[in-house]
Design a protein around this nucleic acid. Structure first.
Lengths: 164, 164
DNA sequence: GAGAAAACGGATAATTATGTCCGAATAAAG
DNA sequence: CTTTATTCGGACATAATTATCCGTTTTCTC
């Protein structure tokens, strides 16, 4: 509802890159491995990010992608704008033309605080934050998974005992 | 960024209906007159709203559309869900699977308050609010327009004086 | 009952978003 | 210089969204 799938790929791709590259250049195949990111489509997305100045790329053997600046300096807003163009949160729901902060309508003002919080979030959240979140979550999922297999093991041993 | 164009048409159409029908049935041609709403597409959208129970329709001569319940009882959320299906605000930005309130990731929690405010807005804003906003804004635009033509008139009279 | 006026429903077209493929350009390694 | 490995760029394919059209059904009026 908030991001297009293309934008979401950009976000996820950058988060993976920041979280696993340790600052060095990383190839697409490497970056995509172990994720559900679509290789070829992400290639297109990354090309756009290169042109937007968020990524740097190197062709040929040993090439790949790396962030054009530190992860904590790349905001969600920059990513969204690189993909979708300037953010168009300024139209009000009622959708009459000529509605902006200089010519607001009542709905415009009602919606404004929400819009502002969204903007704040987009401006203050960086690729570094996303990478950290991604790592935390992956670790967390791993724990869950282990707990489940442990449960299955116990369940299985009980069944085996009953079948004696 | 928030609503699809189809949803926006639904919102605008309902706002026009609520603001101008005085509770009586209104034909599409009448409702669309003076707006930029696309007649034929809106017809499709309204059909969906009828099926969703937000509108009632009458065929044949003297037919048209009317709200299925009072304007202040129809929320933005109902409209959005009638068009886009159940709201899917529950995925986090990082977009890993299995992310929801029971299995959150850090980003999920950061984004949660924003999501909540959006939901509150969708739940608390009604067609009656939108209709009122629309009217206020139209009146306001009218004033602006008059001010501008007044300015042009003055400017013109100055020019005429200079050309004497 | 005939004609007119309205929403309904299905078909189709146009546009945009998403996804795939492949040769070209580039760079490193042998 | 040849091979290999990578991104780049364009072309193409598919799917979803948005938009338009037209005959059908329903209802009112005369």
């Amino acid at each position: 509802m908030i991001f297009t799938t293309t934008t979401e790929y950009a976000i996820r791709g950058l988060a993976e890159l920041a979280g696993r590259s340790d600052g060095r250049s990383m190839m697409l195949d490497e970056l995509v491995a172990g994720t559900t990111l679509p290789r070829d489509f992400l290639a297109k997305v990354f090309q756009r990010l290169v042109k937007a100045g968020l990524l740097k790329s190197a062709k040929g053997r040993g090439g790949g992608f790396r962030l054009a600046k530190p992860a904590h300096e790349i905001t969600l807003r920059e990513i969204v704008e690189a993909i979708d163009g300037a953010i168009h949160l300024d139209r009000c729901a009622v959708g009459l033309d000529k509605c902006n902060d200089h010519q607001p309508c009542p709905q415009h003002d009602l919606y404004k605080p929400i819009r502002q919080r969204l903007k704040d979030y987009l401006n203050s959240t960086t690729v570094a934050d996303l990478a950290a979140s991604l790592k935390t979550k992956q670790a967390w999922l791993k724990i869950i998974e282990n707990q489940q297999t442990e449960k299955e093991r116990q369940l299985l041993s009980v069944r085996t005992a009953n079948n004696k």
